[in-house]
């Protein structure tokens, strides 16, 4: 793991160019060496800007209904067409970006935090290991979507509960990753040295083991984010996700289901946005994996 413990990934990526080289040359070199990462980041910036500044992009009110104008095909006036209530699909799709981004980001950050904390402790305290890993194996045997569905069946539909339902299936995978690294690092010479000098276990975990985990965790986090966005859409589509009044991509597509033959655009555009966003995040993940040399 070639990551200096002091530098965060953002610093690594955006590291200032040495004065003698010139920033432009440096930037071009970075682009040539990491085309996937750059392409993914650029697409992601566009999507994030789309979601954050949703009201700016010639959108209207995502809930405004104009029944006279229902099921209009895409045109100069209705860029992505309209749905069965005469709501503007373009506006709703742009606003839907917010839900997906919030869910994706929240799920990946939360599951990384909880999973890392658990993984560090489980990896270092042998006695916990056997029992906890069986528990993790058991949880991992249940497909993530089914587990999330079951959780949603027991909770009210809200964005917060969707995030909870998506975090729980992801935690065991993070724990596995962290634990595996802890197990291999625990025997490392530097850890033995630190131990010999009387450094306590909590300090060893934080100062010696955590830094080595930063790179793989960031890469794993991007994959969690991508899959969380997909599963959020699946849950909404199956009627067990965000409440129907929130214009998430999954909800828009769920409502368009009955009108596939009449108005395929209701499903087409939100799906394209979802696929493009997930693709961008996966590209960033692949790019970071190559850049940070995570195997």
């Amino acid at each position: 793991m070639a990551v200096p413990s002091s530098a965060s990934t953002a610093e690594l990526i955006l590291a200032p160019a040495p004065a003698e080289r010139g920033a432009l040359v440096q930037a071009r070199r970075f682009l040539v060496r990491n085309p996937t990462l750059v392409a993914g980041l650029m697409a992601l910036v566009v999507v994030v800007a789309g979601g954050v500044f949703a009201p700016v992009w010639w959108t209207g009110d995502p809930q405004a209904m104009r029944p006279v104008e229902r099921l209009r095909a895409p045109s100069a006036e209705w860029w992505f067409g309209s749905d069965q209530y005469g709501r503007d699909i373009y506006t709703r799709t742009i606003y839907g970006t917010r839900v997906s981004l919030v869910v994706g980001a929240a799920v990946s950050v939360t599951s990384l935090l909880i999973g890392t904390a658990l993984g560090l402790v489980i990896g270092f305290y042998r006695r916990l290991d056997a029992v906890m890993m069986r528990v993790m194996d058991g949880l991992m045997a249940i497909p993530a979507i089914l587990l999330a569905l079951a959780l949603m069946a027991l909770m009210r539909g809200s964005v917060r509960n969707v995030i909870v339902a998506l975090v729980i299936p992801e935690i065991p995978r993070v724990v596995r990753l962290v634990r595996a690294s802890v197990l291999s690092l625990r025997e490392a010479v530097m850890v033995e040295g630190a131990r010999a000098l009387g450094v306590g276990t909590p300090r060893i975990l934080v100062r010696y083991i955590l830094p080595a985990l930063v790179a793989p965790l960031i890469v794993h986090g991007t994959y969690i984010c991508a899959s969380a966005m997909l599963v959020e859409a699946y849950l909404s589509f199956l009627g067990a996700g965000t409440p129907p009044h929130i214009p998430s991509w999954g909800n828009i597509m769920a409502e368009g289901r009955a009108y596939l033959q009449l108005a395929f655009w209701i499903i087409l555009f939100p799906g394209l946005f979802l696929a493009a966003t997930v693709l961008a995040i996966n590209l960033v993940g692949d790019g970071l994996r190559d850049l940070l040399k995570v195997r």
Binding site: Y234, L260, I267, G271, L274, A275, V278, L279, N282
Partner: peptide
């Protein structure tokens, strides 16, 4: 890997 399954199904 990035394609929503149900969306692909509808297409």
């Amino acid at each position: 890997f990035s394609m929503p399954v149900f969306w692909l199904g509808f297409i």
